[in-house]
């Protein structure tokens, strides 16, 4: 789901950087007040886990492979703001060290996966926790993968309409939404199931130690 460099037009990534800049400033407000000596090591460990999970490829049906995000566990344990900041750091490292996602696309990736993934997880969890807490965590994790998948597919699929050569051929990503939506979303329905299982395990571990913020 990490969009590489060269796939997004400047008309997309420059406004995305402006929006992400505002979102990063919002998330960083009162950071020192929010964090204490106990939270920082936990956040560090969970961020390192999310960083590692994002680089482990797992085969999924259809002959392709995918990886977990780990953003739901960050959001459920530490809230949307910290999860967004921590996941942005994860994306920056994955991009710089492994080329997984581009620097120009970092803002779009961070907004889709870090911010919208966290928001989807926390909203789904709060909406469903009264029914069944484990199911709420599972749905939250699934939503934290599928919603960013939808946004990434739309960001890619809109590129042919946003930037074209004089003859009408796309300058950046060449496939429209009719191609990108199923291509991105269908594998992520399965990846979301794996993410749900993983997040439930981490959630149970963390809840037993009273680490949860959501």
């Amino acid at each position: 789901m990490h969009i590489p460099d060269g796939f997004l037009s400047p008309q997309t990534y420059l406004p995305a950087y402006a929006a992400a800049g505002l979102a990063w400033a919002w998330a960083a407000r009162g950071l020192r007040r929010t964090l204490d000596e106990e939270t920082v090591p936990r956040l560090a460990a969970m961020t390192a886990l999310a960083y590692g999970l994002g680089l482990v490829m797992v085969p999924i049906p259809g002959g392709t492979s995918g990886h977990a995000l780990g953003v739901a566990m960050l959001a459920l344990l530490f809230g949307v703001r910290l999860a967004f900041l921590a996941y942005s750091l994860v994306l920056a490292l994955q991009s710089l060290l492994f080329g997984a996602g581009g620097i120009t696309a970092l803002a779009v990736n961070a907004l889709a996966m870090g911010l919208c993934g966290s928001l989807a997880a926390v909203a789904a969890f709060r909406g469903l926790r009264r029914l069944d807490e484990t199911a709420a965590v599972a749905v939250a994790a699934w939503a934290s993968v599928v919603l960013p998948g939808l946004l990434v597919a739309l960001a890619l699929g809109l590129q042919p309409a946003i930037a074209q050569r004089e003859d009408g051929t796309p300058l950046f990503f060449p496939f429209g939404p009719a191609v990108t939506l199923p291509a991105v979303l269908i594998p992520h329905l399965f990846i979301g199931a794996g993410e749900a299982l993983l997040t439930v395990l981490v959630w149970r571990f963390a809840r037993a130690r009273k680490w949860c913020a959501a």
């Binding site: 020192r32 000596e37 961020t47 390192a48």
Partner: peptide
């Protein structure tokens, strides 16, 4: 290296906290 860098960054932040 990446995991170490992350932990180091949080370690520095811990000092501020």
């Amino acid at each position: 290296f990446g995991a170490g860098l992350l932990l180091a960054l949080f370690g520095i932040f811990q000092l501020f906290v």
